[in-house]
Write a protein that binds this DNA or RNA. Structure first.
Length: 419
RNA sequence: AACGUGCCGAUUCAU
């Protein structure tokens, strides 16, 4: 048994959960008698590896053998279940633990995180509210998960409340929590608040990271406050945070937005001279910025740069250019790009089609747009509400309301207010 | 004997 256990543990530590499981099965054919540890190791491996059906089966088998899985193993199974989207089963398991064990803070925290992942922030909050009644005090991790989750769900007020609460209880948010919170503030347009927190981090000696600075720089740029973004950029360098690709991309986007292409290019060069190797996203910022300014030729050149460097431009770069061309009414240039991207192995997405459909509608070729709808369905790209709204509006403008109505009837999509 | 919970920032879409 000990030999088997050791070997399985080695496999699990190396992330080879399948092998551990095979060994386990193989052993059972022979004289191997698994003990508590053996079961735990295999099940842990299977949970981490996402093989939850097997993990669940083994869990039951273990209980049948008269062994009692401890709270940790339960928690691992629950974590695995909720992470693979089996929230109902996770909760079933939760009910079962409660019959056998005293719940722990970690157990609650795991489930809270699972609820956030499943897009149920309200339930997560409710679970947090109920945990203390069961003798489980939320800890640092619980608060960090809650705040991050609430921020991602755009529940800024709740996040703010918990942020203050955790601080008042003597816990300290870590950089990640701060960052998630600041990102949410920026998204809500509360840039100045976010900036205050940044300063607070400095004075409280929770050093802000490159990410912290980048998110604010991006926030400033989006609001057109590029000067402030630049100032912050200089400050971060002084503080010893090294600007990375994202930081540069954000600023580049900012300069494009205020139509300072030269500055944008200059920044791009600086970035290169600092030894940073631009990735597809970096080019995208440039491409996108140029497109928004209507500098389609230049954007095209950057697209060629990407290709020349041996990268495949991603959907976003293509979408930007296609959109730019569509807005300029150059559908005959835009359309072939669809084929071009497919040839290069870049899969068009809903946006690509939406943009093209809109372009075709505005030059009064609603019939062509309808063909494109069929093509996208053929290519297994699922149309969304925006696709149909665009088409319906296009058809109506072309005095083909009957076709629009037909579309409403035939396709199964749920019309919303704008439809 | 091992073992469990979180991780943030940039680029595209109609009315």
């Amino acid at each position: 048994t000990f030999t088997y256990n050791c070997m399985m543990e080695v496999y699990v530590k190396a992330g080879k959960h399948k092998q551990a499981y095979e060994l386990f099965k193989e052993g059972l054919q022979g004289a191997f008698v698994p003990n508590q540890f053996s079961w735990s190791v295999v099940i842990r491996g299977l949970c981490k590896g996402g093989s939850l059906e097997i993990a669940q089966a083994l869990f039951k088998q273990m209980e049948k053998c008269g062994l009692v899985p401890d709270i940790i193993l339960h928690t691992m199974l629950i974590d695995g279940l909720s992470k693979s989207g089996k929230l109902v089963e996770a909760f079933d398991q939760f009910k079962r633990v409660l019959e056998v064990h005293q719940p722990t803070t970690q157990l609650y925290t795991t489930l809270i995180d699972g609820l956030f992942r499943a897009g149920k922030p309200n339930d997560a909050y409710w679970l947090y509210k109920s945990m203390e009644g069961k003798g489980c005090t939320p800890d640092n991790m619980t608060y960090n998960i809650l705040i991050t989750g609430l921020c991602n769900a755009d529940k800024l007020e709740h996040a703010q409340y918990l942020f203050n609460l955790m601080v008042s209880k003597g816990y300290s948010p870590n950089v990640f929590t701060y960052n998630a919170f600041l990102a949410a503030l920026c998204k809500a347009g509360k840039l100045d608040d976010a900036y205050k927190y940044l300063e607070e981090m400095v004075t409280k000696d929770y050093p802000p990271s490159t990410v912290t600075h980048s998110l604010l720089i991006s926030g400033f740029c989006k609001e057109g406050r590029v000067i402030e973004a630049q100032e912050l950029f200089q400050k971060m360098v002084k503080r010893g945070c090294i600007p990375d690709l994202v930081t540069y991309s954000s600023l580049i986007e900012g300069f494009c937005q205020i139509e300072k292409i030269d500055e944008a290019y200059h920044l791009f060069d600086t970035m290169l001279s600092r030894g940073l190797v631009p990735n597809v996203e970096t080019y995208n910022s440039m491409v996108c910025g140029l497109c928004k300014l209507g500098k389609l030729k230049e954007a095209f050149a950057r697209l060629q740069d990407i290709i020349r460097k041996g990268h495949v431009p991603d959907v976003m770069a293509y979408n930007s250019i296609i959109k730019g061309l569509c807005k300029a009414g150059q559908l005959d240039t835009a359309y072939p790009l669809l084929e071009d991207m497919i040839e290069r192995g870049c899969v068009p997405d809903v946006t690509t089609f939406n943009v093209l459909i809109d372009g075709l509608c505005t030059i009064k070729k609603a019939d062509k747009a309808l063909e494109l709808l069929e093509l996208m369905i053929e290519m297994k790209c699922l149309p969304n509400a925006m696709t149909y709204d665009t088409l319906i509006s296009g058809l109506c403008k072309a005095r083909e309301a009957d076709k629009a109505l037909q579309l409403l009837k035939e396709k199964d999509f749920i019309p919303d207010a704008s439809t």
